[in-house]
Amino acid sequence: MSGAATTDRAQAPATPPAGLRATARIRAAADGRGGTALPLLAGEGPLALRRTRSSSAAEAGVMLVGAMSAPLGGDHLTVEATAGPGAHLALASAAATLALPGRSGEPARYDVHLTLEDGASVRWLPEPLVSVRGSDLRVRTRVRMAPTARLVLREEQVLGRTGEAPGLLRSRLAVERAGTALLDQELACGPGAPGGWDGPAGLAGHRALGQLLVVEPAFAGSPPAAAVLGEFAVVTPLAGPAVLVTALAPDALRVRELLDAACRTYGR
């Protein structure tokens, strides 16, 4: 996949990109009084940001609104969020993100870059990503975190709206902790993905999948045990102070129920 990306870039300069480019930037910083301030909160284009009330006084809340109409093929959306030393940030989205086909036939890109400095925490709990028929989206989620930082990250992917065939969805989730890879995984599904993606070693007909990653320095001493949460849902400790919940289900609602239950167990 990175080979293809390099080729795309090499061919790009001849014509300007047809799609839209937008970056939302967020910086959270400890305010010195036990709370978290947002010295940078800058949305762009379809990525509008709104401050929200958070469940905890120490945490700043941000909602991504209006992502509904994007990304179309050719678009490149980026969310960049940094939680400075001791800052606590909760990020959510107001609605599901729909990957839609574009006119150019180019793939759309959606990048999320999270940086967590010493003692920071981020809860990134967006609504599902729906891969609509004919769309072609590449999602890259990259997290860089200090060894003392804490993370709760949820990803939900839905293949097609109700009764609809999916588009092509390729996603990579890479989490680096203290300069070492903690989790690196790629998923490709939909028409055009490598063979077997929907077969008995692929999704086996499931149309919704979800993951919940909890990175918690306190797990270093006593990591939670691996456990089977359902026929198609498990929690497993990573090779670091973290657990990953992985769930497959017929629909988005069932995935959310499984991840919500897991979040209550592992995410607090």
């Binding site: 995984q185 998923l187 499931h206 999948l209 691996a226 497993t236 992985t246 497959l248």
Partner: peptide
């Protein structure tokens, strides 16, 4: 880093 969620789940 190609992965299959179902292979991971069924291994556990």
């Amino acid at each position: 880093a190609a992965s299959s969620p179902l292979l991971d789940i069924s291994a556990e």
